[in-house]
Design a protein around this nucleic acid. Sequence first.
DNA 1: AAATCGGAATAGACCGGTCGGTCTAATGAA
DNA 2: TTCATTAGACCGACCGGTCTATTCCGATTT
Lengths: 215, 215
Amino acid sequence: MTKDATTKTDADSPMHATKQRLIGAGLQMLLKHGYNDMGIQALLAATGTPKGSFYHHFRDKEDFALQVLDSYMAAVHDGLDACLQDASRPPLARVRDFFETTQRSYREEGYMGCLIGGLGQELSGISEVFRAKIAECFSAIAGRIAGCLEEARQRGDIPAGCNVRELADLLVDCWEGAALRSRLERKPDALNTMLDFYMGAVAGGGGVGQGTAPA
Amino acid sequence: MTKDATTKTDADSPMHATKQRLIGAGLQMLLKHGYNDMGIQALLAATGTPKGSFYHHFRDKEDFALQVLDSYMAAVHDGLDACLQDASRPPLARVRDFFETTQRSYREEGYMGCLIGGLGQELSGISEVFRAKIAECFSAIAGRIAGCLEEARQRGDIPAGCNVRELADLLVDCWEGAALRSRLERKPDALNTMLDFYMGAVAGGGGVGQGTAPA
DNA sequence: AAATCGGAATAGACCGGTCGGTCTAATGAA
DNA sequence: TTCATTAGACCGACCGGTCTATTCCGATTT
């Protein structure tokens, strides 16, 4: 079995500076332009990289985007680690904290939204590779959140009969929709409203849908 | 009012058959490929149209996509008309009916999702024209739904303190996220779960998050 | 230490293909 | 006639990707 050099994010190699630079700039460009509108030439010009280097480090454009996605997912998992594992806080608060942190990072990027959602929309119709990969990304994130919701369920913070996996998938899905809206409107309101609604509803309760008072 | 059953993309022109054909095929291709991956050549080949006809009816590719979007929105408004105006049914049931109808149409198209959401994700970062237009599309749909929710509020079907416009925006946003997930997984589960959750939560209540039993 | 070697990485000219878009001419209906 | 529409050859630009050449740098040899 030949060694699969593609799509590896892990750090068994030093990951040369040039490759890092390309992936970093590629993330920004993919967030803004999406896949099809991001040109290799533009990426090389923006980073001052000759073409030979790019095709030395990446098999082709698809391989590159998949590795950018791996890098993005690694950052997401880091965020999940940082938020969900703080055993001193109630599990629902940890989940909320993760999404509030994510929302902050969206703003810092200028409301370009979520790379996974963006590439998913653009490519799921034309690339089985991306479709499957991105579905797996969402599933992985939801899996992490489901674990935290299960803690909440066992503490009685959410109803015992809940299907935590379904609730976690739902949260991720709604989040992506709100992220699109926030991207379109260049403001975080949709994200905040969605999070308030979800947390209110899942915790069993009162006050649902009574956000900001009507004007 | 003209008979013009199909779309009122433009004012009151009879809308030539060739133009109709291009818009119809363009909708399918834009749903599957998105904007940047949809080639004019491919569209012309698929419809047997010479290039001269295309550029006679449309200024350029952007103009074409915008008109496809207009046509799509007209269909959405037709769906809203058909579902939301049936005064014999409770308003919340009408809202639900609209989304269930929409979900059925997604399946019939092979789970290509929503054109508005797809183009929104792909183009909002690079085209101010599309960004503003698509934001307006979502706003218009949410406005229609908010009207129906207001009826529900006045009947006491949802809490009196609700901000119906916010609730309607939220519904549209979460729907789009679930539509993306359903597209990625080629199945409607995410859409159904989302709708159940929303309706349960907004109506004030019980049973939230207790969908299908775990396997 | 100096010389040498070899693969990794850089460098950019170059390629075929396709893209969106233009142009001129033929055709059809009023 | 007149003008909207059809028809498709044609265009320059740019795309992703290949190719050959060069440079860099640590390991090996002496």
